[in-house]
Write a protein that binds this DNA or RNA. Sequence first.
DNA 1: CGGGACGCCTGTGAGC
DNA 2: TGCTCACAGGCGTCCC
Length: 277
Amino acid sequence: MPELPEVEVTRRSIDLPLRGAQVQAVRLGKPLRWPLGRDPQALVGLRLGAVQRRGKYLWLPLQGAPELPEQGLLIHLGMSGSLRLLAPAEPARAHEHFRLDTDRGSLRLTDPRRFGAVVWSAARDQDPAARLLGGLGFEPFDPALDDESFHAALRLRRAPIKTVLLGGQVIVGAGNIYACEALFHAGIDPRCSAARLGRARAARLLQALRQTLGQAMALGGSTLRDFRDAHGVNGAFQQQAAVYGREGQPCTACGKPLRRIVQAQRSTYFCPRCQRR
DNA sequence: CGGGACGCCTGTGAGC
DNA sequence: TGCTCACAGGCGTCCC
């Protein structure tokens, strides 16, 4: 369900309510992608620090244990996960597989497909967190990311630009929907080798990624069909995708039927006229 | 090493 | 109505 905008909207919706909250109980449901890696009981009494995001991962610092001052939980929502902040008395929802009860509310992870994960780590820069975060590329809104460095990183990749965007080793945050949308807005054929993008087109792509992700964030992650933040609040309105899921329908810019192809086992939607190699 | 396929799961919608 | 199949917002791991 979540790409960067949804994860960031989720982060913002739990950060202030949970900052400083004290853990009262931790409950696990069915196994997620990886085991928690820690006795849940060991987390009771700790306090939550400011929630951080790296790519599509959330990092929840757990403070108050002198011997483990940097420990925390790394959370990934996978394909179908979402976080909600509920009253502790609220009954478990369907597919609720992780629950963190605090004195300021109960954080619930529901994830039907269970591709998501909640992993304990002694520190963000120690394994397993470090291993999972280690290979990630630029944050799209990192001020240090400029056209030059983006272009330079793309030039090292011979794979199709769509695949490179999804890979997350150059830039994080765009999943299948936003990658398709950004490539459309940048006028770039998704099959085009990343290495063959010139400076100007790389710059256009970076701008399109920021525009697409930024707008989705401003609207509360509303591009996704049924996304809600941790309070259950929906986006301001349903942003219509220009190409994603619109195979055969007319391009909003030129009217030509949009195409669907498969790249690295994922659907890619694009306009064969507006997007050039 | 880069690049692609696989597999982890459950739900949903289309087609018969 | 009920079955089967394709497909779904991700990504670590394995193999070439």
